[in-house]
C-alpha cells in the first residue's frame, strides 16, 4: 500500500498507533495533496483524531462546538461550495443526533462528504448506552446514495480513507475508540470498496465479519484449524453497502453454513445485509447472526462485552461448533453447486 498509494503507513505504525490516530495522520497527509479537503468536528478533535488535520491545515479545519446538527449542515454547505468535507464525531451522534442532516442535507443532495465516525459499537463500553452505537449501520445503509464502510484495523482505515476519495458521494466509515488491535500483517493487500477480503481459506463453514470482529473471527479460525482441523473461511466484509454479493453467494455455495459477526445490533447491520442476499438468491443455508441482541448493552469493558455478547473468538468458536452439528436442507440445485 505505502508505495502505490503514496501513503507512508506500515504495520510498524499500526502497532504503535490506533486506527483513529492513523486516520488523523492519513487525512492530514491527504490534505497536503488535496487542497479541496476540509475537516470538521463538534468538540471531538482530540477524541476522533481529526485534529491532526487541524494541526497541519488550520485554515481548512472547523470545530463547530457541541452542535452535531450544525456540524453536518455546515459540511453540506462546504460541499456545495466545492470542498470535500471529512466530518468526524462519535458514531451515535453522527447517525442519530444528526441523522436527518446526514440523510437530507448530505445524502439527498448526493454531496461528496465523508463521515468518519469513531467510538462505534461497544468500543466505548464503559460509557453506557448513551455513547454506545449499535444502530448506525442499520440507519446509514438505509440512506440512498450512501456507501457504508467498516475497516478492520488501522491499515484498512488508511486504505479506506484514501479509497473514499475515488468514490464521489456520501460515505460513512465506522471505526472504534482506538484500542482495536491490528489484523493485517502486511500493507499490500487488495483493498477495494465493495469487495470482501478473504482473510482465511476454508470450506467447512464461513464466518463473515466486519470491523474489530474480523480479528476475533480470524483467531477463532486459526484455533479451530489447529485443534480440530475445521476449515473456517473468514471474510472481511469491510463494505456493508454496496455489499459484495458475489463473495456471499460463493461462500454459500462452497460451505452452506454462514455465521456473521459484528459489533452492532443483529437488526439491520452486516447480518441483515448478508441474510438479504442469501434469501434473495433462494439458497439453502444455515445462518447465524452474532451481534448485540435486541437490547441496550450493559456497561462494561469492551473486551468483557465482546465476550458477553459472544462476538469474540470464544463466542465465534462456540457458534461454529454448534452450527457444524446441524443439517442443511438440500435445495434443487444442491448437486450443481457443491
Amino acid at each position: 500500500m505505502s508505495e502505490e498509494s503514496g501513503l507512508t503507513y506500515s504495520v510498524y505504525d499500526t502497532d504503535h498507533m490506533t486506527p483513529a490516530e492513523i486516520y488523523g495522520h492519513v487525512l492530514a497527509q491527504l490534505g497536503e495533496e488535496r487542497k479541496d479537503l476540509v475537516a470538521l468536528t463538534a468538540d471531538l478533535a482530540k477524541s476522533t483524531k481529526i485534529g491532526k488535520f487541524g494541526e497541519k491545515h488550520p485554515e481548512r479545519f472547523f470545530n463547530v462546538g457541541i452542535a452535531e446538527q450544525n456540524l453536518f449542515g455546515i459540511a453540506a454547505g462546504l460541499a456545495l461550495a466545492g470542498y470535500v468535507p471529512f466530518v468526524s464525531t462519535f458514531a451515535v451522534f453522527a447517525s442519530l443526533r444528526a441523522g436527518e442532516q446526514v440523510r437530507t442535507d448530505i445524502c439527498y443532495q448526493n454531496l461528496d462528504c465523508k463521515i468518519i465516525a469513531t467510538h462505534s459499537g461497544l468500543s466505548f463500553g464503559t460509557a453506557g448506552s448513551t455513547h454506545h452505537c449499535t444502530e448506525d449501520l442499520a440507519v446509514m445503509r438505509s440512506f440512498a446514495n450512501m456507501t457504508v464502510v467498516v475497516p478492520a484495523d488501522g491499515i484498512e482505515t488508511a486504505n479506506a480513507v484514501r479509497a473514499s476519495l475515488d468514490r464521489p458521494g456520501p460515505l460513512y466509515m465506522r471505526i472504534g475508540r482506538g484500542f482495536e488491535q491490528t489484523v493485517y500483517e502486511k500493507e499490500n493487500y487488495d483493498f477495494e470498496i465493495g469487495k470482501a477480503v478473504t482473510m482465511h481459506e476454508g470450506s467447512d463453514i464461513t464466518v463473515i465479519a466486519c470491523g474489530p470482529c474480523v480479528l476475533q473471527a480470524l483467531e477463532a479460525a486459526k484455533e479451530l484449524k489447529e485443534s480440530q482441523g475445521i476449515e473456517v473461511r473468514v471474510l472481511n466484509m469491510h463494505t456493508i453497502k454496496p455489499i459484495d454479493r458475489e463473495a456471499i453467494i460463493e461462500a454459500v455455495n462452497d460451505t452452506r453454513k454462514i455465521i456473521t459477526v459484528e459489533n452492532h445490533s443483529v437488526i439491520g447491520g452486516l447480518g441483515s445485509a448478508v441474510a438479504e442476499v442469501i434469501t434473495e438468491e433462494g439458497k439453502s443455508c444455515r445462518l447465524k447472526r452474532l451481534g448485540i441482541p435486541d437490547v441496550f448493552a450493559i456497561v462494561g469493558q469492551t473486551d468483557d462485552l465482546y465476550n458477553l455478547y459472544k462476538i469474540d473468538a470464544e463466542g465465534i468458536t462456540e457458534a461454529v461448533a454448534e452450527m457444524l452439528g446441524k443439517e442443511v436442507e438440500e435445495d434443487d440445485d444442491w448437486e450443481d453447486e457443491l
Partner: peptide, 9 residues
C-alpha cells in the same frame, strides 16, 4: 447551517 457552510466556503 448550510448557508453558514456556503459562506465559509
Amino acid at each position: 447551517p448550510i448557508a453558514v457552510g456556503l459562506a465559509l466556503g
